[in-house]
Design a binder for these strands. Structure first.
Length: 273
DNA sequence: AGCAACGCCTGATAGC
DNA sequence: TGCTATCAGGCGTTGC
C-alpha cells in the first residue's frame, strides 16, 4: 500500500518520464474515481495541458499542469500510476488513461479506493484531506520540539497516533510498525507516557525509517509498483511487518501481532516493552 | 473535541 | 473440487 516512501518514489520515477509531456486525450473507465469535477469538465480541462511538475504531500500526489491547474491523486490501498508505451495492453483494473504526446500515464486500482481531483492550484491545497494533514516528517517543520509538544497530554496509543494523518502526514501501517520497532516502543504505549529520551528515539526512528524506505524505492509487499512499473526493495528490510511468528531479528523471540483499531500491529514483545 | 466503528472494494487464502 | 468466510487497510463519514 502506497505510503510516504512509495508515493515519493512514484513521484520521482514518474517525473523523469512525464514532465514536459502534453495531455492529448483522457479515457475514464470507472467514473467514480474522478471525485471532482464532473466527467465532461475533467476531460475538457485536462486536454491540451502540459504536465509541468510533480509534488507530494503526505500520501497525496500532485500533478501540476500548465495554466495553474493541479490533478490531485490518492492511491489509497491498491492504486497504481504507471507510465508506459501506448502499445502495451491495458492491465486488469485500468480505470483512467492519460494519453500523452509520447506514451501514456495509466491509473489501475484493483480495489477501486483511489481518488482523483482536478482543481485550480489554490483550491488543490484546500482539499479537506490535504488541508488537515500534519507536518511532513522529512521537512524542517518536523522537529523534536514539535513532537515533544504534540505528544504531551495525548492519551492515544502510539501506533494510532502515527497512523493519524492530521498528526503526521504520510505514515501507514507498514512504516508505523517498522518505526516503533526501530524505536523499541510498544505500539500500545500511551503517547504522553514517553520519556524525553524515548521521544528523541521515536523522532529519529520516524525520519530514519522513512528515509530508508525512500532509498529502497518503497515496499512491494503486495500491489505497490513505482511509476515505471518496477518493484521496490524495502520489503526485504522489514523487521516486523508481516512477520508474525517468525524470529525477531534482534532477539530471536517470535514476532507478535495484535489488532489495533481494526488493523494488524506487528511487534516484538521483548524488544518493544 | 477526541476517538472508535463502519463502509467501500477485489483477490488471495484458509477451512470445511 | 468448490464453496464460503476472512483478511488486507486508508480515509471519509457517522455516532458516541
Amino acid at each position: 500500500m502506497p505510503e510516504l516512501p512509495e508515493v515519493e518514489t512514484i513521484r520521482k520515477t514518474l517525473a523523469a518520464a512525464v514532465v514536459g509531456r502534453k495531455i492529448q486525450a483522457v479515457e475514464v473507465y470507472l467514473p467514480k474515481v474522478i471525485h471532482y469535477p464532473g466527467l465532461t469538465a475533467f476531460h475538457t480541462t485536462l486536454v491540451g495541458r502540459e504536465i509541468t511538475g510533480l509534488l507530494r504531500r503526505g500520501k497525496y500526489l500532485f500533478i501540476l499542469l500548465s495554466g495553474e491547474y493541479t490533478l490531485v491523486i490518492h492511491l489509497r490501498m491498491t492504486g497504481q500510476l504507471v507510465y508506459t508505451g501506448a502499445k502495451t495492453p491495458y492491465p486488469k483494473h485500468t480505470h483512467v488513461v492519460f494519453k500523452l504526446d509520447a506514451g501514456e500515464l495509466r491509473f489501475t486500482d484493483m480495489r477501486q479506493f483511489g481518488r482523483m481531483y482536478l482543481l485550480p492550484d489554490r483550491e488543490a491545497r484546500c482539499l479537506p484531506g490535504v488541508k488537515l494533514l500534519g507536518p511532513e516528517p522529512l521537512s524542517p517543520a518536523f522537529t523534536l520540539e514539535w513532537l515533544r509538544a504534540k505528544l504531551a497530554g495525548r492519551a492515544r496509543k502510539l501506533k494510532q497516533l502515527l497512523l493519524d494523518q492530521s498528526f503526521i502526514a504520510g505514515i501507514g501501517n507498514i512504516y508505523a510498525d517498522e518505526i516503533l520497532f526501530a524505536a523499541g516502543l510498544h505500539p500500545e504505549r500511551p503517547a504522553h507516557e514517553l520519556t524525553p529520551a524515548e521521544i528523541c528515539v521515536l523522532f529519529r526512528s520516524i525520519q530514519a525509517i522513512l528515509k530508508a524506505g525512500i532509498e529502497a524505492g518503497g515496499t512491494s509487499v503486495r500491489d505497490y509498483i513505482d511509476g515505471m512499473g518496477n518493484n521496490g526493495a524495502y520489503q526485504e528490510k522489514l523487521k516486523v511487518y508481516g512477520r508474525e511468528g517468525k524470529q525477531c531479528l534482534l532477539c530471536g523471540a517470535p514476532v507478535a501481532r495484535l489488532r489495533l483499531g481494526g488493523r494488524s500491529a506487528y511487534f516484538c514483545k521483548h524488544c518493544q516493552q
